[in-house]
Amino acid sequence: MAWRSALMIDPVASDDRREDFAGTLHPFDPDAPALRVGDLSAQRGDGIFESLGVVDGHVQEVGPHLERLAHSARLCDLPAPHLGQWRAAIAQVSADAGAGENVMKLTLSRGVEGQTVPTAWITLASAPDNVRSRTGGVRVVTLDRGHALDVPARAPWLQLGAKTLSYAVNMAAIREAKRRGADDAVFVSSDGFVLEAPTASVVLRTGDRVITPAPSVGILHGTTQISLFAFLAQRGFDTAYETVPLADLARADAAWLLSSVRLAAPVSAVDGEAKAVDRALTDEFNAYLLSPRD
């Protein structure tokens, strides 16, 4: 990954009335040491993050990503981020983006162990080359997430639905998918319902109806999925959030993994069984997702 820039943020209270946050934003070399060894982001994965796509210098879906950052902070008992300060930081970092596709990552940590001040920073890097995934599709395997569909409501302390830094399980799932000859995974509840991919939302089309698993089951509410559903509604599609049995993933006319950086990657196989790719609609999805969106 080619780093472009990085910015450390001195977090201010969410009700701070100032409009100029320049004195709270500190550029630093992304290849140089920046965090204290006691920071809980590194010690325990205790923090939250957002990854935003940046296309030709335009940061995509800033508002929805900041709303989700605030939502994750509430779920994790972190101080509420001042969204105006984060917008100022995003604007400053985006000036280094240039042409092409980049990825901007916002991180809010609980801070150094034993202290009460959070740590916050933003990095900007060149995005991976996602052309093959968007055109050729991705082969997925289904993996048991180890809990039933009703667990998020019964055990909110699991912080399911928050975008936390604790991604070890997600990365292990992708490694397991590759061991099985696939490109990615789709998590399934222990009682047989589709949840999400380790780094993406799952979307299914049957006829003119497009559905995705409801975020109330403890999955991340995808900003790309929300934007795409608004686009599909304008196109005349019926969109819905539903409880999705695993069998529907194979039966659907087409399926995609959606994320802010990879965008729309069509699913070309499920557990070794080939699946038709809707090339025309995939191209339409990605043309829309690559256009400037606020």
Rank of each mutant, 00 (worst) to 15 (best):
F231Q: 06
A13H: 08
L228R: 05
P152G: 12
V59S: 10
P33W: 08
A269C: 02
A230V: 03
L124P: 01
D96R: 03
M8E: 04
E242H: 15
L108D: 02
G114H: 04
W256V: 07
A127I: 07
R175L: 08
D184M: 09
L290T: 04
R18P: 00
D248T: 13
Q115R: 14
S5Q: 05
G111K: 12
V103G: 14
R132V: 11
A172M: 12
M1H: 01
G57M: 14
H71V: 14
P156T: 09
V103I: 14
C76D: 01
I90A: 12
P30I: 07
R175E: 13
L66E: 09
L257F: 14
F193R: 04
L149W: 06
L149N: 05
P30E: 05
P245Q: 08
D184K: 10
R235W: 11
A197G: 15
A230S: 11
A13Q: 04
W121Q: 03
V141F: 11
M1V: 01
A252I: 07
A127Y: 06
A32Y: 01
T243S: 03
L75H: 10
S216W: 08
A89Q: 04
S41V: 09
A287V: 01
I90M: 11
E67F: 12
A88E: 06
G222W: 03
A254S: 12
A120I: 10
G146I: 08
E50T: 01
A73M: 09
R145L: 13
D10P: 00
A264N: 04
D183V: 03
L7P: 00
F28K: 08
L149G: 01
P156I: 12
P81C: 10
S201K: 05
P128M: 04
S189W: 00
L249W: 14
P213Q: 06
V138Q: 07
Q115P: 00
S51T: 15
N170V: 03
L69S: 07
R293M: 01
Y167D: 06
H82W: 02
Q225E: 15
G53C: 10
L40T: 09
E176H: 06
G146D: 07
V217F: 12
P27W: 13
P152S: 13
P11Y: 08
L52M: 14
A6P: 00
L195D: 01
I48Q: 10
L83H: 10
S72P: 03
F229Y: 12
